[in-house]
Design a protein around this nucleic acid. Structure first.
Lengths: 232, 232
DNA sequence: TCGTCAGACTTACAGTGTAAACTTACGTTG
DNA sequence: CAACGTAAGTTTACACTGTAAGTCTGACGA
């Protein structure tokens, strides 16, 4: 006779449930508040039970990263390389906005998971199929991803989210410090950042297009030099 | 008569000594190993004594960030905006290489210090004096710094530093995983990353020039539209 | 000589990740 | 059905973290 008579069978723990719950907690409370004990509690389980499904906390974090990478739209084969990578970059940025902790975690996460590898494979493939040489692909990849991750990082570093918060922040900031010690910063803040409608995030698309256009120019130049056919 | 007869007077603690020692420890052992107790020990002092000079650990980290920012070359007035910002970007990257922990810390460090403010003031001033509008300055700033910080971040995320390490790493990596599951990644790794002379860091300058050239093009276009004089 | 006080030290506490040992429930096998 | 192995949970314990609160010390001014 089982001991837990009448008790509803507890939902079984598994790696996926651990990971998705961890992601939710990190989204809600920030990664620094995600502890093994809190995560266990949320799952109705003691902290140590989690170690049946993750090797240690770093493994948990790695798993979280790979899981959120699955949310990123892969570059489509049917689009041109530029729109394909434009879409996936926008999608990547949205993911990084949803999971603000992910960007900071990717340094320490040395070993990429399956979703991450697939993602990179497809991005590289997109460049290659568009006629980018290996060297040019490396170059393009470095520039594009540096921009996307760097932008996300800067966006998160800003201590305000809404326009109103920015305004309030800016007022305090200005009153305290700048007037003539930092004249350009002063002008920039009052004349631009504090203007209605400002949002750092709006700079993402223009910057992305700048990068993509520049890469296209370089590729065309390379193709021309290499002597490949060029429609015209 | 003093009790510590004959004892060499202990060098007095002060904020600067605390900060520079903390920076050295973080450089040597990584930021995650920098604890108040270790820092105290290094300074010949108990952990709690540090709190006479820093408000708490976050204040310590903020102070470290602002201190290393002083190492970054400010854009020079005598150079053209492009070379001025090129130099400061290279200098910024070198700083981020020396202090690998700095990049990751800048998210949490909400309140910028004096050196950081001065830095941004000068960068903004460089754009403004080169005829960039406020909006264009915001755009340029976002793109340029996203690139620099993003590149540094990616460089640090790579789990190898030297070419030999990369090769060793790549071999294991390839043997284990890729062959036909990730064909493009496979080709890219064997055909480029594992080639002699490869180093991710070498992509920095080409990418930086791509960004700067593209910004120059956009500025010229803007100036033309605005109807300002253009030397010809 | 005393009082003041800054800057150091001591102690203590709640919280962290996780090793090691345990308990329990269930499926397989004799 | 009994015995056992195993997977998945719990309990306990430990070393280490940041830091609050209280104490000690030595130099200096009155």
């Amino acid at each position: 006779m089982p001991a837990n008579t009448g008790a509803e069978a507890r939902i079984k723990l598994n790696r996926e449930r651990v990971l998705t719950t961890a992601i939710r907690l990190a989204d809600e409370n920030g990664i620094e508040r995600l502890t093994m004990r809190k995560l266990g509690e949320e799952l109705g389980v003691e902290a140590m039970s989690l170690y049946n499904h993750v090797a240690n906390k770093t493994d948990l974090l790695n798993g979280m990263i790979d899981t959120v990478f699955e949310e990123v739209e892969l570059p489509s084969h049917s689009d041109s390389w530029k729109t394909a990578l434009r879409k996936r970059s926008l999608s990547l940025r949205e993911m990084l906005k949803r999971h603000t902790w992910a960007n900071g975690l990717m340094d320490s996460a040395a070993t990429p998971g399956a979703a991450t590898l697939r993602h990179h494979d497809r991005v590289i493939g997109t460049f290659r199929n568009a006629g980018f040489s290996l060297a040019m692909t490396a170059h393009a990849l470095a520039v594009l991803d540096s921009y996307v991750y760097g932008f996300a990082k800067q966006d998160q570093a800003l201590p305000f989210d809404t326009e109103e918060e920015a305004a309030a922040m800016g007022q305090v900031f200005l009153a305290h410090l700048l007037p003539d010690q930092y004249p350009y910063l002063h002008e920039f803040t009052t004349g631009h950042v504090l203007q209605p409608g400002y949002s750092f995030g709006k700079e993402f698309v223009p910057g992305l297009d700048l990068v993509l256009d520049a890469l296209e120019q370089e590729r065309d130049a390379e193709v021309k030099v290499t002597g490949e056919a060029r429609a015209g």
